[in-house]
Nucleic acid binder design. Sequence first.
DNA 1: AGCACA
Length: 446
Amino acid sequence: MASVSSQPQFRYTQPPSKVLHLRNLPWECTEEELIELGKPFGKVVNTKCNVGANRNQAFIEFADLNQAIAMISYYASSSEPAQVRGKTVYLQYSNRQEIVNNKTSADVAGNVLLVTIEGADARLVSIDVLHLVFSAFGFVHKITTFEKTAGFQALVQFSDSETASAAKNALDGRSIPRYLLPEHLGPCTLRITFSAHTDLSVKFQSHRSRDYTNPYLPVASSAIDGSGQFSMGFDGRKVEPESNVLLASIENMQYAVTLDVLHMVFSAFGPIQKIAMFDKNGGVQALIQYPDVQTAIVAKEALEGHCIYDGGFCKLHISYSRHTDLSIKVNNDRSRDYTSPVLSSQPSVLGQQPVPIPGPSTHQFEGAQYASPSDQPVIHQPSAGWATSAAAAGAPPPPPQSMPMQQHNHPYMPPGTMPPQPVPGMMPMQTQTGLPQSAAMPPYSH
DNA sequence: AGCACA
């Protein structure tokens, strides 16, 4: 079949066009360089660079045909060839009359990232892991995940394009750190472009979509009932069905964690009905009961993997309990029913302060949470913005800071004396983290 | 060094 314009493709005399075709450009030539090149001859109204398989071709479109002719004519008789960064550039009239800029949305920065997770086990990456990874760069508003021909993909919504760009720059082409993934998973590489979306629509909290700005969203039945499609947890086991009761285990318990401390930490997300603490496997665990599943989900989401005290001490691991209503027989320092006025009001547990067990010196993680791949997976320790009032409230030196969501509380006061909680919240905790930038780099290998 | 898309 003859092509539409059945002329030989390469010839020395193209019919004039206000669009010029350039080749042999240096790699990653910019629009600015093209404009500089054409400016002496007229008004450059459009450019397109990084064209072709080698991305070393480009187009310049002038406002007027005569300007294009002027440029071609000049270099046709010039002893100096057209150059960009010292590299000779070959010019000719394009065989088209205008540049069509199919600027894909992937090229224009937006606040929503399109993330493709590559790897054999890509679809086993949980939305929680994605949330963790991207939260390092700022507050993640929403995440949706879906399967396309491209594979397992996610849309991740940030507040603004600056934050999204920072995340994209740091993570594109890198792999999710191994310690964030279940052990049996292979490498999972992130390919990131900008999405054209600006605001994702998340109707339900589910295993495939989350809206972190709205803790009261209904929870999709698929995430609760026996559909079996629960995302993978950190340890690679199926995550339990959501429940209003959380099971928290405390790792690296350098300081005593009292019932009141737990109450304080967990009540940031909503009223707590009951807490029961017990020893298991040489560690301390606690069951925390909220009135509803949604509150528990938010609390779990925000607290999982975080430490009650700075320095990686008393790290929380949270799962959903199979319980829905705890049976508290007696209020003591290990169990408490906050809904029962008869049982409560034992003064003995009030006003407790964290007691250093071995008394380690405190050190901060700051933004370096990604720098220690072996342990301490993801600890968002806001390095600024609070701690002053808490420290001044009489807490002993070792744990100078506490959970970020307690910002407006005095952490070690009896619950009843605390000021009213603001929004139960994950908001403050992710935002203040600061960009990890170089600190985030090591574990993300190419 | 030779005409763009995704």
